[in-house]
Nucleic acid binder design. Structure first.
Lengths: 214, 214
DNA sequence: CTCTTGAGGATTGTTGAACAATATCTTAGC
DNA sequence: GCTAAGATATTGTTCAACAATCCTCAAGAG
């Protein structure tokens, strides 16, 4: 048994959440879910802990766990932190190891290829890799894991996006522009472009969230 | 009972670790600690998970949990992230709410008062509050908690410092300089000063760690 | 009618135990 | 002295029972 029961249960719940079967705000009852999945409450709670760590669900003392509801304020905050971490990466680009700089260019290429194929799901994944690579220029393990967690949180908001293409398409070329500014050593302009970039993306997501809520 | 048992136990262990009662590298035996604290192994493991999440302890599979040993590479990384978060705060200072800017000035005053009293322990605490306030200028809850965790990790390294006075004293006036640059709207100079400030502090800690290790 | 109060029921929190899996220590053999 | 097999101790996983807490909803006071 390579994976523990708790890990398998967590994977099942993760899939259900990301597939929309368990919408944000849903309470995950220990007894009902445990009976449903044929496991004890304690094992289920262990699975919950894994999901809590990924912030896919939240735990309220004596209340239970609920599928995370991402508020507009959360999106605003996530983009604030992203701005701080990715800006730091851009400022570190000049002294970053070649391998890290190559990762940025690679993600740009992958996004372009996926866009040519019309695979907008994959464009989204490549976009996330691009931004992770930007933050990764700092060469900091702690920044890497923080970035991973932020992007995992953001995925919860993507459910609100009606058209993946309309959201991702404009950013393919902007990613390329950013990468070229970095390669050209124009770090100040790159940082400025990154700031407006993130502001635009945030606005798009917030608009989509408002639309779904209404 | 506002806090769960696991949370209270985690607080106890956190205090013991920071007070030096549980030095870095100590193994936290489940059976012995559980008997000592009068709680079940299961609850203790829950408390461990909280501390693991704060990276005050590390978990090695089938080996147990140990009080975190901070390597020089960790200190370097922590200062990288601090630089990113505090720089973001300084850049946000211009548009930050007055209450957040006041918190920065307040911490400077408290440090100066403690220094006059010769209470170098308290100078250290005020210094941490100063830096937390700097990062707090971003107004981001996620940055606040990230900063708290970083500073808690860093405290693990402070055990290596032989003379609190020699470490903290020079920074009292530098904090004041930084705060005045911010109040004067000279954000670029403030950011530059912050960078050299953090580099100097990092160097001091790394030197002390090397000295203790040898 | 609104607000408080307090059972009662439902849900989560905690415990101790049993068994499995793994690492470490001990010992026998070469 | 070194290696390998077995013994021992510790952690990992799961379970069911009991304790603590929250929420609902009805009864009563104002």
């Amino acid at each position: 048994m390579a994976l523990s029961t708790a890990q398998r249960v967590a994977a099942v719940l993760r899939d259900r959440i990301e597939a929309g079967g368990l919408p944000p705000g849903t309470q995950l009852s220990e007894e009902a879910l445990g009976r449903d999945l044929g496991i004890s409450r304690n094992t289920l709670r262990e699975a919950f802990r894994l999901l809590i760590h990924e912030s896919l669900v939240v735990h309220r003392l004596n209340r239970g766990v609920f599928v995370r509801v991402l508020e507009p304020a959360d999106v605003v905050d996530i983009y604030r932190v992203r701005s701080a971490l990715e800006s730091a990466g851009v400022r570190a680009a000049a002294t970053a190891p070649p391998a890290l700089r190559a990762a940025v260019r690679e993600a740009v290429g992958e996004a372009a290829r996926a866009a040519a194929d019309g695979d907008w799901q994959e464009v989204g994944s490549a976009d996330l890799r691009f931004h992770r690579a930007l933050a990764g220029l700092s060469g900091s393990p702690r920044i890497d894991t923080a970035m991973d967690r932020l992007l995992a949180e953001l995925r919860l908001a993507f459910h609100a996006m009606p058209s993946p293409r309309r959201f991702h398409e404009p950013f393919v070329s902007r990613n390329r522009v950013l990468a070229e500014l970095l390669d050209g050593g124009e770090h100040e302009r790159a940082e400025a472009e990154l700031t407006t970039y993130l502001d635009d993306a945030r606005t798009l997501i917030l608009d989509a969230m408002r639309e779904v809520a209404s």
